Simulated assay, not measured.
Amino acid sequence: MAVWQTKWRWATGYSADSVEWCPVEPYRDVLVCGTYQLEKNTEQDNSSAKQTRLGRIYLFVINKNTTELIPVHSIDTSGILDQKWSYHSIMDYPILAVVTSIGTLQFYRLTNENGALKLKLWLEHVIGEDVLALSVDWSTNRSSSEEPRLVVSDSAGCVHVLKIVGDRLEMMGRWESHGFEAWIAAFNYWNTDVFYSGGDDCIFKSYDIRVPDVHTTVNKRHEAGVTSIRSHVDVEHQLLTGSYDEKIRIWDTRSLKSSIGEIDVGGGVWRLKWHPHKRDTVLAACMYGGFRVLRISDETEILSEYLEHESIAYGADWQFDSDLVATCSFYDCKMHISEVAV
């Protein structure tokens, strides 16, 4: 069994939905927490009026010298829906990709000026007007590239693929993929021409950018919206999906007609993160079911659960060089740092 021990709790102010540890050396003690909140406006009686979504990114350094959680930097922005660090530096900087409630994709450089760490906006791209950009993934989690790609999904059901070329972004393609929100999009890290999306229409799709007008696979086996997709960095052909139907499904990417296994985790699955060093271990944020650590093997099993948050479990991530796990929850506006012995 995996044993959780809560080390710190911190109030995030706005509702918290994303926590991501930096994977780039020597900054693996760096953590970002992303938040999202509807601005309260009592004069907004017209239900069709646009709602303003506020957001804030908090930057932390958490290591053996930490005694309490204090952000070293914060940035006010639009509502944050997802964040992902590049696994490799770009132009000598660790880079954080962020998608927002006003349909933008932003890139922040982690800078170190005289020992003071800060996030500085580097690039920004508008995905679409009047849409929320819902998820983002890098193509380079397994190997670096001179022109790293990103895939972004949005609330209009579209999926966008872009690449970084020098100091600018180039669009590679846009797909009208789902009838409702495209909650998630992710790359196959072993073949970055291939990517996936999942939508509120319960459909899981696979694409190949070399044949942009063709959906390689359309799978309708999920019983509710598809909310999470994660390729394995260390095990070729292994892929996980999570859904509002409270199941995690295991797939072999060579045949996506049906999953090769599934497990009920007792809550809608919003985030899935493979352990950075234990290739059969997964961290899951299960919305109303709290957080889970699972073993994905011939007999998939839940190793432990973490129920100390009091609201929707949205964000979760492993630190790369320790047993620390960051988790965050929405309406109670909390981030926890725990030690998890697996």
Rank of each mutant, 00 (worst) to 15 (best):
Q44N: 14
E39I: 04
H237K: 10
D264G: 03
V61I: 07
P71S: 05
S231I: 11
K40T: 14
R210Q: 12
L54G: 04
S311G: 09
W175H: 13
E246K: 02
C33E: 09
W138A: 11
T241S: 15
N63E: 11
S322T: 14
A16G: 12
T100P: 06
L59A: 09
D82F: 01
H336Y: 09
L294A: 07
T104I: 02
Y27G: 08
R174C: 15
D92I: 00
R9G: 13
N191F: 10
Q106F: 01
I296M: 09
F60L: 11
P212N: 11
L31P: 15
F187A: 11
T216H: 02
A49M: 06
Q5T: 15
N114E: 15
I302V: 15
Y306W: 05
Y314Q: 03
C158N: 13
V136K: 03
L110W: 08
K84N: 10
K40E: 15
V265Y: 09
E262F: 09
Y244F: 13
A133V: 10
V30N: 04
V265F: 02
Q106G: 02
I263L: 13
W274K: 02
T227R: 07
Y314E: 01
V61H: 06
P212W: 03
S329W: 11
D323P: 00
A316K: 08
Q51I: 11
H232N: 15
S89W: 00
V325F: 03
T77V: 12
V235C: 05
R221M: 11
W4N: 05
E124M: 12
S47G: 02
R279G: 00
G179T: 04
A284R: 03
E170M: 12
R53A: 01
I337Q: 07
V342Y: 13
R292T: 11
K64A: 15
T66D: 08
E43Y: 00
V194G: 04
E181H: 01
H222K: 03
F320D: 10
N63T: 05
H88F: 15
V214D: 12
S329A: 13
D234G: 13
A284D: 08
L59E: 03
K50S: 15
E308F: 03
F180A: 07
T104D: 12
N188F: 04
K247C: 10
